[in-house]
Design a protein around this nucleic acid. Structure first.
Ligand code: MN
Ligand code: MN
Ligand code: ZN
Ligand code: ZN
Lengths: 131, 131
DNA sequence: TTTGAATTTAGAATAAGTATAAATCTTATT
DNA sequence: AATAAGATTTATACTTATTCTAAATTCAAA
């Protein structure tokens, strides 16, 4: 299951995601491909994103918005969304193990992972607001 | 903004959500309404769910599945999904304040809230699996 | 009663994503 | 080089969840 077939279109999609640091949606990726002069079929972009996700070169993020976002940062991390401007930033601070432990005890689940989405106001929007 | 107009359909939808403890989707609510003998328009159920959410009688949950779920439990809490059977259970254990603090410091955000979705295997599915 | 606002209804429209089937590209085999 | 097999891309149709629209209905003043 390790074989990797990076076609022109998959490579181009991967490059976009790798070089974007704003967690782009499929539509974002599409626009950036067009800006670079590519004109792939709509479905190809989705297929490529799915392929890259399956091969674990990128991650799909479901943050509670209408569209999935994509992330080439693979280390385990969480996200925070600005309620004012909508930007999505990284949260590297790890979930406390004691908390997962408490949840396992409380629920009786074997807890495998946690997806956390923080909400708040980013520093830029904070300064704009105080004006 | 406090006026509350609970029509027959809104009341019926509210009753379903209040008496369901499995975090039903809009489609679930619809089916249960039909079981009770109601036959509301599709859009009315969505409108009612939106209305009740706006009036804060229920909460809309976006857990990363395709459809929203609804919850009449209003106290601040999180959720955990069984990867085997798909059930959604409550997590009352609160997010550690130190962690939110660390995230605020790391990101520079004014952190307002966190949505957490744990994933794992529920106790029922654990026992079934060991067999 | 008439009037007007709010609500419901049926159905059309939208948005994100998936499925399909034909066309094209790759890779091996002769 | 010619062929066949397999994978991929393309264009388009479809699905699913949800919202929008416009007409019909309900409900509450005046
Ligand atoms: Mn990220
Ligand atoms: Mn709940
Ligand atoms: Zn912001
Ligand atoms: Zn289970």
């Amino acid at each position: 299951m390790k074989s990797l077939n990076l076609t022109t279109q998959r490579q181009a999609v991967y490059d976009i995601v790798r070089n974007s640091h704003d967690h782009p949606t499929a539509a974002d990726v599409m626009n950036r491909l067009v800006e670079k002069g590519y004109n792939f079929a709509y479905g190809t972009v989705y297929n490529s994103l799915r392929y890259l996700t399956e091969k674990e070169l990128i991650r799909e993020l479901k943050l509670g918005e209408s569209a999935s976002r994509y992330d080439a940062k693979l280390d385990d991390h969480q996200h925070i969304i600005c309620e004012v401007c909508g930007r999505v930033d990284e949260v590297m601070s790890e979930i406390p193990k004691e908390w997962s432990g408490a949840v396992a005890k409380e629920t009786g689940y074997d807890v495998h992972h946690a997806h956390v989405v923080f909400g708040g106001v980013c520093s830029e929007c904070q300064t704009k607001r105080t004006k």
